[in-house]
Structures are given as structure tokens and as C-alpha cells.
Simulated scan of single mutants.
Amino acid sequence: MGTTAPRRRARRRLTGALAAVAVLAGVVTGCDGGEPASEGERGAQAGPRWNTAPTSIAAVGDSITRGFDACSVLADCPEVSWATGDDPAVDSLATRLIGAAQAPARSWNHAVTGSRMADLPGQLASAAAHKPDLVTVMVGSNDACRPLASSMTSVADFRAGFEKALAGLRAASPTSQVYVSSVPDLQRLWEQGKDLPMVRQIWKLGICQSMLADPLSLATGATSRREEVRARVVEYNEVLREVCAKDPLCRYDGGAVFQYPFSAEQLSRWDFFHPGKDGQARLAELAHRQVTAAKPPR
């Protein structure tokens, strides 16, 4: 009984000290005991938020976005472009997002057949002039598709080109969102057409020789060459992912196009390499799914 009072006094001093520490912590951390931050406030703190319903689109890239060989042999067919086309059979990204009536006036296709990453800064400069809500990027196939595997664009140059292009767009049109498609798996396209004699004859005209030369050869040199090209495409896609991740308004497709199992029926009936109308429709579907998702793909 004689030690009860001192213990009570010690307990009160400890409680008071803890309370003081709590108050001090609140001052240091800025906690005022008010309501928690709203979703909008948290979004503002995290940076600009992705708009899942853009109303204007500019497309850049290469022959795939131009619809090359999708309608006739060795010719562009932008009306079936996965990004900005107006063909109902494709139902392009622009049509899905903006509507068939408004899309022609609110979408622009600056892709050029044969383009490589080195051409992207110029294309994005043209796209930026429209101040579009969204810019779609699909480039890299021609950096891997060269006369020889040794002629492929280096990974360092590919990265430098993409960083320059994205920086230029951001300076000219700061609020434009960017959807970046992965480079398709060129080896899978080879697998789809290599056993067809007519296709092999067409490939001899010069289509993607780094991958498609000697399509039936299983010699060590030919096999190693194809594997080298595929590995370079994988490296390109990693560059696209890494550079895009640094920009809060850039969304990479997570490898969706690279991983998509394109079948022969979805490829051009003239070259069995570029997407046909059905292939373009699948690209539009993949893009729409990624652009309208609440969160980016992992």
C-alpha cells in the first residue's frame, strides 16, 4: 500500500510523456486529425491521371498502322488501320472511342510504311500539332526486319530514339496521352507462313529477311539468326516499357501485341506477314482494352 501513490505518479508521468510524443509526431507529419484525403486529392498528389475516354487520336508508326497489304498487294490501306481506320469490319480504336460519325474529323494517321524508330521524332512532331488527347505508337518491326540480322538497330539507338521522340511530344503537347504497342513476335509470323510455297516465294521479294530468309532451313546459322532477331524484339519491348514508365501519361500495352497468337487467318493474304483486316481488328480490340482500363497492364 505504501508504494501505490508513487506508482500512480510514475504512470501519470509516462502517460503524459506519450501524449506529448503523439502531439509532436502530429506536428512533424502534418497530421491535423481531419478527414483523410479524397481520391481526387490523392490523384493530384500522384500526378496527372489517365483519361480512359479520349476524344481525339493521332497515330504514328510503320506499315502496320498504315494497313499495308491488308486490302491489296504492296499498298497502304489506312481505312482498315487498327488505330484510325473507318472500316466497320475493323472497328478501329478511334471508332470505338470517338464513334463512327466523329472519328474522321478527330483522328489523324501520321504513320509511314517502312518507318523505324529514327523516324518517330518527326512523326510525333506532326502528331503533336493536333494537340490530340491520345497518341498511339507502334514502331520497331522495321528496326528488327533488316536485310541482315547484323543490320538491326542497336538497343542503345532504339532507346535514344524513343526518349527523344517522347520528349519532343511532351514539350509540344504536354497533356497528350501516349499508348505504346509492343513490337509483334516476328518469329511467330514466320511460323505461320513458312510451310506455304506461295508465301515463301513472296518472302523472297525482300520482306523482313533477317527473320524470313531461308524460311525452311533448320541449319544452325538460320536458327540462330531467327533467335537473334526475336531476342532483339524482346529487348526493344523492354526499352518501350522502361521509357514509357517514366512518363505519367504514357501507357505500354504490357506485351499484349507481342504475346497475341496471330493465326494465318489474321494475316495478309498477300504476304502472310502484315495483319489483314481481321488482324487489324484484333489490334484495335487489344488497344481499346488497354486504353480504357482503369489501371495500366502489369
Score class of each variant (00 low, 15 high):
190 W>V: 07
34 G>P: 02
119 D>T: 09
238 E>N: 02
284 A>R: 01
154 S>G: 15
286 L>W: 06
277 K>Y: 00
285 E>N: 08
136 T>H: 05
109 N>P: 00
293 A>C: 05
217 S>W: 11
233 V>M: 09
219 A>Y: 12
53 A>I: 08
78 P>I: 14
171 A>W: 06
29 T>N: 10
30 G>P: 15
142 N>R: 05
186 L>I: 15
26 G>Q: 03
188 R>H: 15
105 A>L: 07
22 A>R: 07
250 C>I: 10
124 L>A: 08
258 F>C: 03
210 S>G: 08
52 T>L: 02
72 S>A: 15
46 A>F: 09
91 D>M: 00
228 E>P: 05
221 G>L: 09
10 A>N: 10
48 P>M: 02
219 A>H: 11
175 T>D: 14
124 L>V: 06
231 A>Q: 14
157 D>Y: 00
105 A>N: 07
47 G>F: 02
62 D>I: 03
224 S>N: 13
72 S>D: 13
24 L>S: 12
31 C>E: 06
58 A>H: 12
218 L>S: 02
84 T>C: 13
16 G>S: 07
65 T>A: 14
9 R>W: 05
86 D>A: 04
288 H>G: 14
199 V>S: 04
282 R>F: 00
252 Y>H: 12
294 A>L: 14
242 E>V: 08
87 D>R: 07
49 R>T: 15
55 T>R: 15
211 M>D: 01
194 K>H: 11
12 R>D: 13
62 D>M: 06
89 A>I: 00
254 G>W: 15
295 K>Q: 10
93 L>K: 12
246 K>G: 09
81 S>Q: 08
75 A>W: 07
107 S>W: 10
47 G>T: 06
153 T>K: 03
75 A>H: 10
98 I>E: 01
172 A>M: 12
111 A>M: 08
76 D>T: 08
248 P>G: 12
76 D>C: 01
25 A>C: 05
49 R>V: 15
